[in-house]
């Protein structure tokens, strides 16, 4: 028996008929084909699968599909508003915070949740808030720099897509 799941994804109503044994991660990636959300363990041990559920960053690999009914989910695909990147996305791209980019969606989600609650975190607080996300590439420094830069970057800066010359 399939489960009819009705919820909100990235601000839009979503409905899916899913295998009830699936996790939110599997529903997002397989049934909604929102593959921006990643997985590195499926056991809660890496943070790659983080999404916002009702505004809180959770690990989608540990959320059962039944418990998504009626809730509001935001994935990395939902961070871009009106075709403009979120300041965090701009800064991550500009400052090398994303190397292979595989941990990036989860970290962006955790960072967004942080800035939504605390618009001016210290570097130590950013470290703590992101400590549920592993990255094997960057050594974290450029991620910290990027979050700090996003704190001061006004609203949605214009997208600058590798057009050379910018820092």
């Amino acid at each position: 028996m399939k489960l009819r799941l009705t919820f909100t994804v990235n601000g839009e109503p979503a409905e899916a008929l899913v295998d009830p044994d699936k996790t939110l991660l599997e529903v997002l990636r397989e049934d909604l084909q929102l593959t921006g959300t990643k997985h590195g363990c499926e056991l809660g041990e890496c943070g790659a699968c983080a999404v916002l559920v009702d505004g809180q960053p959770l690990l989608s690999c540990l959320v059962v599909s039944h418990e998504c009914q009626g809730r509001s989910v935001v994935t990395v695909e939902g961070l871009t508003v009106d075709g403009r990147l979120h300041p965090l996305q701009e800064c991550f791209a500009d400052l090398g915070a994303s190397q292979c980019g595989y941990c990036t969606p989860g970290i962006l989600i955790a960072a967004k949740a942080l800035l939504d609650r605390e618009p001016h975190p210290t570097r130590d607080l950013i470290r703590e808030a992101l400590s549920g996300n592993l990255c094997r590439c960057t050594g974290y420094q450029q991620i910290l720099d990027a979050v700090e830069a996003a704190i001061v970057r006004p609203g949605h800066a214009s997208a600058r897509d590798g057009r050379g010359g910018q820092s």
Binding site: G47, A50, S131
Partner: peptide, 8 residues
């Protein structure tokens, strides 16, 4: 655990 796990 981690901040994400503590949310759950």
């Amino acid at each position: 655990a981690t901040p994400l796990l503590r949310n759950m």
